Simulated assay, not measured.
Amino acid sequence: MRELVITNTAKEDIESISFFLESNFSNRVKTEFLLRLSEHFALIESMPFMHQVSETNPLVRRCVIHKNAAFFYQVTEELIIILAVFDTRANPNNFQF
């Protein structure tokens, strides 16, 4: 089984989205987001190639967590690397891999 690694960029993204959700919605909404994210991380640990390949980089895959959130990740022989987590309502051109 591959080890799941979250980059510093992705960690910052998660913190930023969590803060936004708690500030603009509620702690419950933030918690639901973090739970969904954890569930998707667990899924890709067991099935790393289940999500679509990025249109711009065949080494990167995109996982939609929710209609408003997704993340990019890369699979190597030993690792699953979470590259970035983003709010899909933002400019999609900023999130190309």
Results as ranks from 00 to 15, higher is better:
residue 55 E to Q: 14
residue 34 L to K: 13
residue 6 I to Q: 03
residue 48 P to W: 00
residue 67 K to C: 11
residue 38 S to H: 12
residue 18 S to Y: 01
residue 25 F to V: 07
residue 29 V to P: 01
residue 23 S to W: 07
residue 86 F to G: 04
residue 1 M to R: 11
residue 82 I to C: 11
residue 97 F to K: 02
residue 65 I to K: 02
residue 75 V to L: 04
residue 7 T to L: 03
residue 38 S to W: 01
residue 48 P to H: 03
residue 5 V to E: 13
residue 3 E to I: 10
residue 92 P to F: 08
residue 39 E to N: 15
residue 55 E to K: 11
residue 3 E to V: 08
residue 11 K to W: 13
residue 61 R to V: 07
residue 83 L to H: 02
residue 17 I to Y: 02
residue 25 F to G: 03
residue 26 S to R: 01
residue 66 H to E: 04
residue 38 S to D: 11
residue 90 A to E: 14
residue 96 Q to P: 06
residue 81 I to G: 04
residue 33 F to M: 03
residue 81 I to Y: 04
residue 65 I to T: 06
residue 93 N to D: 14
residue 4 L to S: 04
residue 35 L to Y: 13
residue 81 I to L: 09
residue 76 T to A: 05
residue 89 R to L: 07
residue 87 D to R: 06
residue 94 N to T: 10
residue 21 L to I: 07
residue 33 F to I: 02
residue 5 V to A: 14
residue 96 Q to E: 14
residue 51 H to E: 04
residue 23 S to H: 12
residue 2 R to T: 02
residue 3 E to Y: 08
residue 32 E to L: 12
residue 72 F to A: 10
residue 97 F to S: 02
residue 88 T to D: 03
residue 11 K to P: 02
residue 94 N to H: 13
residue 24 N to R: 14
residue 41 F to D: 00
residue 38 S to T: 09
residue 90 A to H: 13
residue 67 K to T: 15
residue 80 I to L: 01
residue 94 N to Y: 14
residue 13 D to T: 10
residue 82 I to E: 03
residue 73 Y to P: 05
residue 82 I to L: 11
residue 6 I to H: 03
residue 17 I to C: 04
residue 1 M to V: 05
residue 34 L to P: 05
residue 42 A to F: 12
residue 23 S to I: 08
residue 14 I to P: 00
residue 28 R to F: 15
residue 82 I to V: 14
residue 84 A to M: 12
residue 46 S to F: 09
residue 39 E to S: 11
residue 62 R to Y: 14
residue 83 L to D: 03
residue 95 F to D: 00
residue 67 K to A: 12
residue 22 E to L: 10
residue 60 V to N: 01
residue 19 F to V: 09
residue 45 E to M: 12
residue 61 R to A: 00
residue 82 I to F: 05
residue 91 N to L: 00
residue 70 A to C: 07
residue 72 F to Q: 12
residue 82 I to S: 01
residue 63 C to R: 05
residue 19 F to D: 06
residue 3 E to L: 11
residue 6 I to G: 04
residue 16 S to L: 09
residue 15 E to S: 11
